[in-house]
Nucleic acid binder design. Structure first.
Lengths: 352, 352
DNA sequence: CTGAAAGCGCTAACAA
DNA sequence: TTGTTAGCGCTTTCAG
């Protein structure tokens, strides 16, 4: 096909046509070293005329350059939200490895600022060409990003971000809107008079509350569309299923009229035991995030709907996009990527 | 990092360790030419011990091999379903081009068997290393696939498939289930007594009816869960918006009780004019597929929900997966890929 | 500022 | 059956 009349042009062809050496062509193409304006023009013209495209395989082979990215994300247990994020990073890294992309992971303790500081410093020690992080500790992250700005190191946010910083890229859902969507789903079949909003005890004990915007989206939607509806808040202990059970038993015994249950964190599965013991065909339960255990609850019918997105997908896309932009030394086409929110019910759970 | 103690091993290292030449290593790795069992074992052991991984950039540079894939899909106008499928193919092809993957496209007329035959022959003339197609004309596709089987050419189906053939790969939604999902959505808020199922005139005039399974999923669901509900069928002409308008006006005038409207093909947008002229807050309208015009209808509130998947995604994944398996000469890990069905409403339309 | 030349790791044709 | 060798197209050092 292109072998007949148009053999694919190489640096050699460009050099010949421009009347310079291959070295010079390389210099103008990649701005290495100084080149006379005259040569520059000649080369540029030749490139244009020949429609020259560098062969990326040859380029990478010769260059032997590695691009190291460091990620700083929360610790996790198997199957949890950040574990899925991590999987997405690993997937992307595997795909990008032949382009010389490498990944270094740093996990910090979300309840401990010091561990974040330690890990962010460790990430700097990697001497990476880019950093990916999330933003639980706003002040510390802001400070860290200023440090990165000074070093000229690009950084990207995953899941949540700090608008005031000069991040290069962001992938995540719009938490406020996801909360609204959850509330909409909860109230879709019939208008709620009373809603149980279940929260985790740690939510208030920790310094950071990453769940706030989503919760506000949720409650704002309800308050706006169902001003007469009461939203009750129940706190359960994610580490103690026994006390959770008791708390729920007691709460719902005191509020027998409640038919709507929502939970704006990713752990709706914690309600499984209670829900299975107290079946109610009229009840509507809405949760967030596609953790395996949450999907199981939908499958079994305990949870009516889940608001989520394919979690690993966003981290995979982020790393891919970020690496691409760093390697090509171009800003990403788009900076903010609010990923689409999926609605998951028992009717469309398969193949997710 | 790996430069210190563990420089990345090359064919040269493997050869040395195995006590053979680089040529021999290459032979056992890629089964070219005969190698003594003894050398084979030695090489294999060395590969194992050194954890040798071939450098794909060097490999592709030296090999200069191209992998041509031919696609045979229906003609389309800008923005239509097959146009989106096509976009997915192009996207994947761009990404895969540096691995030597090339794409040749063949468009046929869905209403004309002969054009399918012509294009399938043209595809063969490309001498591709793999063929991608859909299956509108079942008999002809079956025959063609037998031809491909004999030639030893792998083929993949997109969107729909013929189970009896030896296809290597399939990506598409489960049409029957998507129909059920649509029916579920339509009946979610309140039980339907009467439903208008709008169909396209061409559906019955053409020989093939690719929409059948989805429609059956839809009607089966309704019949099963709402046995007392009547499903009325209305045919409209997709090429004549005037007659469509008249048909709908007349039909709904005769059936004033209908509050549920469904359309199992991808053209719910054809109802926009009617729906906008006859607003009804109680009405529920469900359609399929994320064509731009359909999304607009959801945004404007004429359509309540859309059942879809990200269309270009499935063709992109198909080509990526197919190319990967052909290049590596391995069967894909999985053959059938029923992609997840998204539920789109005005609440989660952004960023889709 | 520019050219020449030595690879990068792998492949494939040719000799042996 | 095996070893040798000349590239693939680009990068980068080193002279000039």
């Amino acid at each position: 096909m292109q072998n007949s009349n148009h053999p694919i042009p190489t640096v050699y062809d460009v050099a010949e046509r421009a009347g310079v050496s291959r070295g010079t062509v390389d210099r103008v193409l990649y701005q290495r070293g100084r080149v006379s304006e005259q040569s520059r023009q000649k080369v540029l013209r030749a490139v244009e005329e020949l429609q020259y495209k560098p062969n990326s395989n040859a380029s990478r082979l010769a260059r032997k350059k590695e691009y190291l990215f460091s990620c700083i994300i929360p610790q996790f247990n198997e199957g949890e939200y950040w574990g899925e994020i991590n999987n997405g990073f690993l997937e992307a890294a595997a795909l990008l490895s032949e382009r010389g992309v490498r990944l270094r992971l740093h996990f910090y303790d979300q309840t401990d600022v010091k561990s974040f500081l330690a890990e962010s410093n460790a990430a700097l020690d990697d001497k990476p060409c880019g950093i990916i992080m999330n933003a639980v500790f706003r002040d510390e992250v802001t400070l860290f990003s200023q440090q990165l700005d000074e070093l000229g190191l690009p950084y990207a946010f995953i899941d949540n971000k700090i608008d005031e910083t000069h991040y290069a890229l962001y992938y995540g859902v719009d938490p406020y809107k996801s909360g609204e969507l959850g509330a909409w789903l909860l109230s879709l079949r019939f208008p709620p008079k009373e809603i149980a909003l279940v929260r985790l005890l740690r939510d208030s004990s920790q310094r950071a509350d990453p769940n706030r915007p989503r919760r506000h989206g949720f409650t704002d939607y309800i308050n706006k569309h169902f001003p007469d509806c009461t939203v009750h808040t129940v706190f359960i202990d994610p580490k103690d299923s026994c006390s959770t059970q008791k708390t729920l038993e007691k709460f719902f015994a005191e509020h027998p009229g409640i038919r709507h249950i929502g939970m704006t964190n990713s752990r709706i599965y914690l309600l499984e035991k209670y829900l299975s013991k107290h079946p109610d065909p009229e009840r509507i339960v809405v949760g967030f995030d596609d953790l395996r255990k949450n999907l199981d609850c939908v499958k079994k019918g305990y949870v009516s709907a889940l608001v989520t997105r394919h979690i690993p997908e966003q981290s995979k896309l982020l790393l891919t996009d970020f690496a691409e932009s760093v390697i090509s030394r171009r800003a990403p086409k788009r900076r903010d990527h609010y990923v689409h929110m999926d609605i998951l019910t028992r009717m469309n759970l398969d193949n997710y």
